[in-house]
């Protein structure tokens, strides 16, 4: 069966599943941030996604743009740090680009995610190889687009994106950080996976899982 659209419910499930994953892996994310940052990425993401899901549960969104703009605003106003504005901008842009619809088709989702990535770059100025969440987000979206050239099945595109995300995440280990707090370490940042790259990989894991499950 080919899933060539994704529903508001599924997208809501995606955010919920992402909340579950960052919560499960809170210690792992904080440990990564201890090594090359300030030991708060786990609690930042858990606090932020916790607030997002609480808000969704309290007043479910009627449209896709409402869902993601709400998530973005919640992250911006509840996380702080670097990840709050970056993840917040990502979801805000996803929502704005998706528009007031109830369902997204594959190209619609791809365009929305791409806009999110552009937002992250606009805010954080990260480039490929800077050892940030960009190094997961960009290859994952490329893989997503490539997969859609072959088939319009969102589920397998998400699988491809997740697998590229994992590769991207692992590849950050060898990189020297040039953005964010880890950049202060210079050479000593090499040898550690970037915490934001790890949480972004969980974002694609959540998308892949939610689509397979259905």
């Amino acid at each position: 069966m080919v899933n060539d659209t994704i529903s508001l419910d599924q997208l809501t499930g995606w955010l919920t599943r992402f909340r579950d994953l960052v919560t499960e892996q809170v210690s792992y994310l904080t440990e990564l941030d201890s090594a090359i940052g300030d030991a708060d990425h786990g609690s930042n993401m858990t606090r932020g996604m916790g607030a997002v899901v609480e808000r969704i549960q309290a007043s479910p969104a009627g449209t896709v743009d409402e869902l993601f703009k709400g998530a973005g605003m919640t992250l911006v106003t509840s996380v702080g740090g670097a990840s709050g504005p970056l993840y917040g901008t990502f979801f805000l842009r996803v929502g704005t680009t998706a528009g007031p619809v109830g369902t997204l088709d594959a190209p619609g989702l791809a365009a929305a995610l791409r806009a999110g990535l552009d937002g992250v770059v606009a805010r954080g100025k990260a480039e490929a190889g800077d050892k940030t969440m960009f190094d997961v987000l960009a290859p994952a979206l490329d893989a997503f687009d490539d997969a859609l050239l072959v088939s319009s099945d969102i589920s397998s595109a998400a699988g491809a994106a997740y697998s590229a995300a994992q590769t991207g995440r692992d590849a950050t280990e060898a990189l020297l950080a040039r953005k964010g707090r880890a950049s202060y370490l210079g050479e000593r940042s090499i040898g550690h996976i970037d915490p934001g790259a790890a949480s972004t990989s969980l974002l694609f894991q959540a998308l892949a899982e939610i689509l397979v499950k259905e």
């Binding site: 300030d38 708060d40 930042n44 106003t77 702080g80």
Partner: peptide, 11 residues
């Protein structure tokens, strides 16, 4: 003041 060692949010 933000949370301990975490910058405040914009609001």
């Amino acid at each position: 003041p933000g949370a301990v060692f975490t910058s405040p949010t914009p609001d």
